[in-house]
Simulated scan of single mutants.
Amino acid sequence: MIDWAQVNTLRDDVGQEDFAEIVEIFIDEVEHVIEKLRTVPDLNTLGDDLHFLKGSALNLGFLAFSEQCQLGETNSAAGHADQVDIPAIISAYDASKTKFMSEMPSALTP
Score class of each variant (00 low, 15 high):
59 N>H: 12
7 V>H: 00
95 A>R: 13
72 G>H: 05
9 T>M: 11
22 I>W: 07
12 D>F: 00
96 S>F: 03
1 M>F: 13
91 S>T: 14
13 D>M: 10
61 G>L: 05
54 K>L: 02
37 L>D: 01
101 M>Y: 09
82 D>Q: 15
72 G>Q: 05
67 E>F: 08
51 H>S: 10
54 K>T: 04
3 D>F: 00
90 I>L: 01
11 R>M: 01
59 N>Y: 02
52 F>W: 07
9 T>I: 04
21 E>F: 02
85 D>C: 09
16 Q>H: 04
71 L>T: 10
39 T>Q: 10
5 A>F: 07
41 P>W: 09
98 T>A: 11
92 A>T: 03
53 L>V: 11
79 G>S: 04
80 H>N: 14
83 Q>S: 13
75 N>L: 15
25 I>Q: 04
24 E>D: 13
18 D>S: 14
26 F>R: 03
74 T>M: 11
33 V>W: 00
38 R>D: 09
61 G>R: 06
17 E>M: 01
80 H>K: 15
67 E>W: 05
105 P>A: 05
96 S>C: 09
70 Q>D: 10
99 K>L: 11
19 F>G: 07
94 D>T: 11
104 M>V: 15
64 A>N: 13
44 N>K: 05
69 C>I: 06
74 T>R: 07
15 G>R: 11
108 L>C: 10
69 C>V: 01
95 A>C: 05
4 W>P: 07
28 D>V: 08
104 M>G: 08
46 L>T: 08
42 D>K: 03
87 P>N: 03
49 D>K: 14
17 E>C: 02
95 A>V: 11
103 E>V: 07
1 M>E: 08
27 I>S: 07
97 K>W: 02
69 C>E: 01
85 D>A: 12
10 L>M: 11
43 L>D: 12
34 I>K: 07
87 P>A: 00
15 G>I: 00
103 E>W: 00
82 D>S: 12
54 K>W: 01
75 N>G: 15
83 Q>A: 05
89 I>E: 03
99 K>E: 08
43 L>V: 14
53 L>K: 13
15 G>Y: 10
107 A>D: 09
105 P>W: 03
36 K>A: 10
97 K>L: 00
55 G>P: 10
84 V>S: 02
35 E>G: 15
75 N>I: 12
24 E>A: 13
78 A>R: 10
5 A>I: 08
31 E>M: 13
10 L>H: 13
73 E>S: 04
88 A>V: 04
